[in-house]
Amino acid sequence: MDRSASSQVSSAERTRRRELLEEWANWRKRVEADLASDRAALGQQLAANTDDEEAEEVD
């Protein structure tokens, strides 16, 4: 890991890098939120199925 970024990079390049990092962070936020809601929906579905099974046992 000997090659670190040079301090000679232009300010345009620095701006580009900052934008890339920001773009990635925003994308991750969106995807993680989508996944969380998908997971919650799936969890509810599973819970509902479990409830049905219990109801059947009672009957």
Partner: peptide, 8 residues
């Protein structure tokens, strides 16, 4: 990963 630059 994000900057697509080789680091080592």
């Amino acid at each position: 990963k994000i900057l697509e630059e080789e680091v080592g």
